[in-house]
Amino acid sequence: MSALLQAEGLRLRFGAAPALDGVSVAIWPGEVVAVVGESGSGKSTLLRVLSGQIAPDAGTVHYAGQDVLALSEAGRRRLMRTEWGYVHQNARDGLRLGVSAGGNVGERLMAAGERRYGSIREVAARWMERVELDPARMDEPPRNFSGGMQQRLQIARCLVTEPRLVFMDEPTGGLDVSVQARLLDLIRKLAKEMGLAVFLVTHDIAAARLLAHRILVMRRGQVVEEGLADRVLDDPRHPYTQLLVSSVLAA
């Protein structure tokens, strides 16, 4: 078995500041990898480089044998809407607010070439149910839904074409704690059912512990520690990880 996504020696500078300083990552099929670190540590930059949204100064990214950085824009978009999913921190960035919930879920199906209205409705209804939304509300616009529901709708919209790899950028950011817990539960369930590989960026250590199999700790554009989630969180070795773990507030 080979890694689904493999990145080697990524370097990227924004002016004088190194955002990525020799980062290598591998994501295996069905694996949930979390990147934690403080603001400005380069974790969101890493996410954007891995998903092909920005090109690094140096380094390679391969997805299932293809060179992501060498892909044409058409090829990258095809990957983005078939093999990959992208969950934005803010559901409003990931959803089309002028379009009904059902249309939001169905868009990727149509992009993938589905031309039967009936089956789009059917699949959209099934997916709304899977993310615990009432399918009877599929013709309502997203603004009628609460923040947590919008985030679940965004997840349904991403997963409807059954991608193999999903990028998540702080999916629980800005949600209150009970809603966060429910969302994390749902993501964990779906990832397991579908055998999804997830690349999760978060500053929430608790979310990382709950979801991730493996954790990368980033600081100043470098991965300072990497290992199984429990190991990194229970036995942090790098001083920065120790600081990070010890500064989590216990309820």
Binding site: E73, A74, R77, R96, V99, S100, G102, G103, G106, E107, R108, M110, A111, R115, Y117, I120, R121, D139
Partner: peptide, 22 residues
């Protein structure tokens, strides 16, 4: 223009979906 270049017309299809749904 980029969508035309890529032949990506899922947006127009989506508009159609919305019309039928409504």
């Amino acid at each position: 223009r980029r969508l035309h270049a890529l032949g990506d017309y899922s947006l127009a299809q989506l508009r159609l979906y919305e019309d039928i749904a409504r």
